[in-house]
Write a protein that binds this DNA or RNA. Structure first.
Lengths: 155, 155
DNA sequence: TTTAATCAATACCAAACTGGTATCGATTGC
DNA sequence: GCAATCGATACCAGTTTGGTATTGATTAAA
């Protein structure tokens, strides 16, 4: 249904939690308690965002996690890609392009364009935007402004 | 991975085929041969777009399908929704909102905003835009123009 | 150096979804 | 009545997803 997975959503929740105390390290247990997610689920979430470089982990006693960059430097696209891999609305626009009906399907390039547009939108919304409720009003304007500046090559 | 199902893609291909000869009725076999899709798959595709009112079916001998509106009156959003139901990126933004961690998850409204933006984008790209390769150049401008006029309530 | 705390890697499972196909019934024109 | 055509449904295998558990590696500190 054109939806993103729950884990991606959890990822955003966790990053939000880490951003609340960017300086201190928070353990899996800390995050679990703060967010209401189970420990096991938190572990799974952490793997994705650590691998993506959005969070820095320290092992061992007194270890924990801390956010790798300022929330304004982390886009929703970063988070989505951390969990769902490279975004491609259709297989046509995926890297390993293998459409069997390509002759009759000259529409793939257009999907690619829509895909690019979506990337631009998600890439221009930062974790900071999404965290702060006060920013919601101006966020709309930000997005529209950004879109004006977009240079879509293949649309 | 935030992707649209193959059936949705097929739907666009089939609608394109129907638009090529908007006046004449085309049977399942006709469409199958023209698109390269199997008859069984075409049947499944037709059900969705007929139910959505995008295509008109006539049963019985000499029956067939014809497109219900001009291609310029059919948006990509229409097609996507015909196959994937109402679009909601997260369960938070779905109608039956039942997020278990709502207290710690104040982000839902923002997902809703992104969701709305996506709806606007897809709703403003028509089948006509996507069919005609010559329009691709101006399509980009169209979208940006449309986005400028968007009034996003909850973003 | 031992220990306890903590992250890392992997594996597992059930449920849901997806793509693809088949079957039988209902309509309609000739 | 018959042949052509759409409609509804059901089925199945493969994949994905959400959720959980297990075992191993690392580190700080006693």
């Amino acid at each position: 249904m054109l939806r993103i997975g729950k884990l991606t959503d959890y990822g955003l929740v966790v990053l939000n939690q880490l951003a609340l105390a960017a300086a201190v390290k928070q353990s899996t247990d800390d995050i679990s308690q703060a967010t209401g997610l189970t420990v096991a689920t938190v572990r799974k979430v952490m793997k994705a965002i650590v691998d993506a470089g959005l969070v820095i982990a320290q092992r061992g006693s007194k270890g924990g996690y801390r956010i790798a960059r300022a929330p304004a430097q982390i886009s929703v696209l970063d988070v989505v890609q951390a969990f769902e891999g490279p975004i491609s609305l259709t297989e046509c626009s995926a890297d390993d392009n293998q459409c069997e009906i390509t002759e009759s399907c000259s529409l793939s390039s257009n999907w690619t364009g829509i895909n690019d547009l979506l990337l631009q939108v998600l890439g221009n919304i930062t974790l900071d935007d999404i965290r702060n409720p006060d920013v919601q009003e101006s966020l709309h304007h930000q997005i529209v402004d950004q879109l004006q500046r977009i240079q879509l090559v293949n649309l």
